[in-house]
Design a protein around this nucleic acid. Structure first.
Length: 206
DNA sequence: GGTCGGATCATCT
DNA sequence: GATGATCCGACCG
């Protein structure tokens, strides 16, 4: 399959990286168990001026968001609602806090492992990696990976297939309470693993 | 189909 | 002391 994505891939604005991460592969070997997924949905958190970001200027640098100020190509993993882990990819430059939240993957390898980690009985394939908390759980991701490089085991990102612009849709980010109008969510149109809006098929225009 | 609330806790004020 | 880049099951229609 593809090569490990190089630093220069990440050393660009979060919006660009979010768009180009679609189709990339996440390879996890956490606990010696191989799981691979294809990224189908992302969100960009662009920098200090992004009011919805954990590293917005009004918040500044804190213990939680420190990884966002680190080198591009590393992970920012945080716990939300005391329950779920979320995986972000750090982008742009050191000291410019920006990241891309991975919102959904399509399972490719190790589906049985992912299934078992989810621990909810039988789940449809397309639901295993749908939603940031769900995909983190399926891949065995937790806070230990915060700040770690995404170019070495146990968590690596590989170049995937190029996705046609026509196959990509954008929209407002999910669940945020600020900057709600910005179209910083990117997803592969019609993909069943995409979270957020459940009705993907829009009724014909009248 | 849709809406609602509980879980659960680290983080920040 | 309040909040949150979520998920799931309950309930309603």
């Amino acid at each position: 399959m593809g090569r490990v994505l190089p630093i220069r891939f990440y050393a660009r604005p979060a919006v660009v990286v979010a768009r180009e991460l679609l189709g990339a592969r996440i390879v996890s070997s956490v606990d010696g168990l191989l799981t691979v997924g294809r990224i189908v949905e992302t969100e960009a958190y662009t920098g200090p001026d992004d009011e919805a970001s954990h590293a917005a200027a009004r918040i500044g640098r804190t213990a939680r968001n420190a990884a966002m100020f680190g080198p591009p190509g590393s992970a920012y993993v945080y716990r939300i609602y005391g329950v779920h882990w979320c995986l972000n990819v750090v982008t742009d430059t050191v000291d410019h806090p920006a990241a891309v939240l991975i919102r959904a993957i399509e399972p490719i390898t190790g589906i049985d492992v992912m299934h078992e980690r989810r621990g909810r009985g039988t789940i449809a394939r397309c639901l295993i990696g749908r939603g940031p908390g769900n995909l983190a759980r399926a891949l065995g991701i937790d806070g230990i990976l915060n700040g770690q490089s995404l170019r070495v085991a146990p968590l690596r990102l590989l170049r995937g297939d190029a996705i046609d612009d026509a196959a990509i849709a954008t929209g407002p980010r999910i669940g945020v309470t600020r900057a709600m109008d910005l179209p910083l969510r990117f997803f592969i149109r019609g993909n069943p693993s995409v979270s957020g809006r459940r009705k993907q098929s829009r009724p014909p225009e009248r």
